[in-house]
Amino acid sequence: MPAIQVNHLGKSYGRFQAVNDISFEVEAGTVFALLGRNGAGKTTTIELLTGFQKPDTGTVRVLRLDPIRDRAQVRGNVGIMLQEAGFFPELTAGHTVEIWRDFTPAARPASEALELAGLTAKEKTKVRQLSGGEKRRLDLALALLGRPDGLFLDEPTTGMDPEARRNIWQVVRDLAARGTTVLLTTHYLEEAQQLATKLAIMDRGEIVIGGDMAETLAARVGRVSFELPSVIRPGELPLPATVRGSLAVVQAADPDLAAQTLLSWASERGLRLRRLEARTASLEDLFLELAQSYEIPQNDVSAGSDRPGRSGDARA
């Protein structure tokens, strides 16, 4: 049985339909990315999955439990990392984890949780002295205290430097490999592509794309780009290309084959294709495609609050 089951889920705030008849499943040990622009419905969906909100329509099961009816059992078996957390600024990171352990059944040792989050060196540092990225890691340490079977990560690496972000990626991979089910939202598209094997992209409360990450991207068109030789006109190329300035771009279902075709053509003419790059479709390409299809502003594809008048805090 899937670790998370969502069937025809709906939630409104007045006339605003935040979540509109969505359905998806997440198998145990899977990293599932819930993506979309600000206001797409992700935050409300997480609130419904974790029992912070009651659905208007549809059903939710997390680890075979109803997050509303079986709230205590669900909270005891899942870890939740919200967009913002309320810490006492004068407590140290270590003391914060120790206090949290008192409310967490079968909690890990504080030192183990801090190590998982990469905060061992900050154990005696006051929370107010932690950077934004370090506070996010403290959030993660608290979410992992109870050795959860399910983990909800809402923007887990915001404010982290690249090294810290990749360290957290490895923690998530290790947890999934041991059977933990992870649902995450993130506005770092590379992060989602690196971690998730399944995805759902929401827009205006609905899931517009969902399924296997690799299959979804493989179905999109890749591209080959290169610097157009000054002696060549676009119409002379062996494949149709869009030229922007000196850069030519060829859309191709098989970018490797397209690149070989271009290189063979250039070799026959004694030409060199500078800055040649062939790549399959990425999540960024997919979002740009959706931005055009659904008129989504291209600078507005991050995770955030989908509730009118709210700033993005996922708590009820």
Score class of each variant (00 low, 15 high):
Thr30Trp: 00
Gln129His: 15
Arg128Gly: 04
Ala241Val: 00
Ala117Glu: 04
Asp66Pro: 13
Leu153Arg: 05
Gly222Asp: 11
Arg315Phe: 13
Leu184Met: 14
Phe152Asp: 05
Thr92Lys: 00
Ala303Arg: 02
Ala200Lys: 02
Arg223Ala: 15
Glu190Asp: 15
Tyr13Pro: 02
Asp56Tyr: 06
Leu199Val: 03
Leu140Phe: 10
Asp313Lys: 12
Lys122Gln: 15
Glu227His: 08
Arg272His: 12
Pro238Val: 11
Phe287Thr: 11
Pro234Ser: 08
Arg147Val: 05
Phe287Gln: 13
Pro156Met: 07
Pro238Ile: 10
Arg307Cys: 02
Ala107Leu: 09
Ala107Met: 10
Leu140Lys: 06
Thr180Arg: 02
His187Asn: 06
Leu175Ala: 12
Leu257Trp: 02
Glu191Ala: 01
Asn38Gln: 07
Ala141Gly: 10
Arg220Asn: 13
Pro238Gly: 12
Phe24Asn: 01
Asp139Ile: 06
Glu25Met: 04
Pro238His: 11
Glu123Pro: 05
Val243Asp: 07
Lys42Asp: 00
Phe87Lys: 13
Gly118Arg: 01
Thr180His: 02
Leu271Gly: 03
Leu65Ser: 04
Arg173Asp: 10
Gln298Lys: 10
Val31Arg: 04
Asp66Asn: 14
Phe88His: 14
Asn20Ile: 07
Arg223Gln: 15
Ile296Arg: 00
Leu63Met: 14
Val62Ser: 00
Arg178Cys: 08
Pro89Ser: 11
Leu145Pro: 10
Leu142Asp: 05
Pro89Arg: 12
Thr43Cys: 01
Leu237His: 14
Leu183His: 05
Gln193Ser: 14
Glu155Ile: 00
Asp313Trp: 12
Ile80Trp: 03
Pro55Ser: 11
Leu183Tyr: 06
Leu130Arg: 09
Arg223Met: 12
Val60Pro: 10
Leu239Trp: 07
Asp161Thr: 06
Leu9His: 01
Ala252Pro: 04
Glu277Cys: 08
Leu130Ala: 13
Ser293Val: 05
Ile201Tyr: 01
His95Pro: 04
Ile207Arg: 01
Asp256Glu: 14
Asp161Trp: 11
Arg310Asp: 11
Glu112Arg: 08
Val172Ala: 07
